[in-house]
């Protein structure tokens, strides 16, 4: 009797538990945000030197949205990040595949990749300015470099880590090298590539502000830089929050794509 009820209940349980658990997580997230805002307000009212409170910042944000600056800045920054990021990952994927698949390519490329990986992209900025002037090119280039370097390594790792037995399984079914590459290596390394893209996006976004220090006319980083000159902390906060929100949104989008494309993976 007890056994029967237990059996009858069990299939429904995981389905019911999953949403309630995520609802709980979301609730906790909200609580955390509220606590953060309270602490922030407290710090501002106690009078930490010049620190604007949430309301002040919200008002500033309203202002910047109303006069269109925030949108222009955000679009300018987004464009740089997206162009740099797309070019970077677009190049990183074939290069990573070449390095993972051909020992010769690996031998030739690895020293450069490993070397430039140890240089923070920001350190390239002076060089980029001297070589490329102060237009859009050096900014996009630095972001491109940051995105490229972080995704090339994980693509390469993904290709190297493809399970040998899967390759052998394809070979014994009569697959040519080309088929193995397209039908086994590419899908098997997709999870790595997507992780690399997320890391790449993170570092592209992270490089943005510094890249916009290069004599920009607009952009979130530029705006914050300007605000710094006038001790305009509220604008700096608006910029920071905008960067955070946009970065988070893009990361979630990629995460969603990752879930879609790699839902075949066994997750523990």
């Amino acid at each position: 009797m007890t056994q029967l009820t237990a059996l009858g209940k069990s299939p429904a349980q995981p389905a019911r538990r999953a949403p309630s658990r995520s609802r709980r997580a979301v609730a906790l997230n909200l609580v955390a945000v509220v606590i953060g805002l309270v602490v922030w307000t407290a710090l501002a009212t106690v009078g930490v030197q010049g620190l604007p409170g949430p309301l002040e910042v919200a008002a500033k944000a309203g202002e910047l949205i109303a006069d269109g600056t925030l949108l222009t800045d955000a679009l300018a920054s987004l464009r740089r990040v997206l162009v740099g990021f797309l070019l970077g990952t677009l190049l990183a994927v074939p290069v990573g595949f070449l390095m993972g698949w051909y020992a010769t390519a690996r031998g030739l490329l690895e020293p450069y990749v490993q070397f430039f990986r140890t240089i923070p992209p920001l350190a390239i900025i002076p060089l980029a300015i001297v070589l490329m002037g102060i237009g859009e090119v050096p900014k996009v280039f630095v972001i491109f470099l940051a995105a490229f370097l972080s995704s090339v390594v994980s693509t390469f790792q993904g290709v190297v880590d493809v399970d040998r037995t899967l390759i052998n399984a394809a070979r014994v079914l009569g697959a040519s090298d080309r088929t193995i590459f397209l039908k086994v290596v590419v899908p098997a390394s997709t999870p790595f590539i997507l992780v690399g893209m997320r890391v790449g996006l993170g570092s592209a976004w992270g490089t943005l502000v510094a890249a916009e220090l290069i004599a920009a006319q607009e952009g979130l980083g530029f705006r914050m830089q300007q605000a710094q000159l006038y001790y305009d902390l509220s604008t700096i906060f608006v910029g920071l929050i905008a960067i955070g929100v946009l970065g988070l949104l893009m990361d979630r989008l990629l995460l969603l794509a990752e879930r879609r494309l790699t839902n075949w993976q066994e997750r523990r």
Binding site: N168, A169, A170, V184, A188, W264, E266
Partner: peptide, 9 residues
């Protein structure tokens, strides 16, 4: 193969 070696995707 012992490890099944199915293409998981």
């Amino acid at each position: 193969f012992q490890q099944y070696a199915l293409f998981p995707w």
